[in-house]
Amino acid sequence: MVAKVVTVSSGKGGVGKTTATANMAAALAAGGQKVVCIDGDIGLRNLDVVMGLENRIVYDIVDVVEGRCRLRQAMIRDKRLPELYLIPAAQTRDKNAVSPSDMVRLCDDLRTDSDWILIDSPAGIERGFRNAIAPADIVVVITNPEVSAVRDADRVIGLVEAEEKGPARLIINRIKPEMVRRGEMLTTEDVLELLAIDLLGIVPEDERVVVSTNRGTPIVLDGKSLAGQAFRNIARRLQGDSVPFLELDNQGGLLGRIKGLFRPGGD
């Protein structure tokens, strides 16, 4: 096995990086892949909470880097999915406790023994962000259909390009089809026109996501949730499958939506 390292980033905080990381990881693991998640947000960790593994933390990433434990000891196995692991961030240190080269070394050690390594990047574009993207093979940029989030995503995409990490892939999170229909929210086309990168997925707003992150149960394990379906599709696209985008607008019909996606310029 040679794992692919996927870093989830956004620039702006609160757009859903951690939720997306946890759910992509769970979806990949549910499909039989061996997945290791790394929380890159040292000092403000919460991937462990979203994954429901907080109470099992003994060692963290800083312990590994500073040699207080072996890599295996810091890998927490998920309760439900035996092929899903988490390396938590330290809560008592800051981003400077780890360097970009530490992250590259850590991922190189993990690569031979897993299929996917998912890194949850902190908000911002400083040290923590540079740590998170240093080992990345694929950078996934996540944004909301809001002008400020899109602006930050654009900046992050530029930085990823400058670091020669290849073209980033985009997830648009928390789309409200009702508001888009009323013309009160940026549409998928508006966002794509500006960012001009490959779209990996569109995730609709879903109240059940809040419940799932609070409980530490990934929404992808909820068969009825549309957001869960969106994340399952994203995981399949990451693996190279071609999956059509979710039908979010019931009135426009599938054809209308596809036409909308490819209409040059929009209006």
């Binding site: 930050d152 654009d154 900046r155 995409i157 530029g158 930085l159 390009e161 001009a196």
Partner: peptide, 9 residues
């Protein structure tokens, strides 16, 4: 310059 200039450049 033959590329897109993104935010921050």
């Amino acid at each position: 310059v033959r590329r897109t200039l993104r935010s921050g450049i």
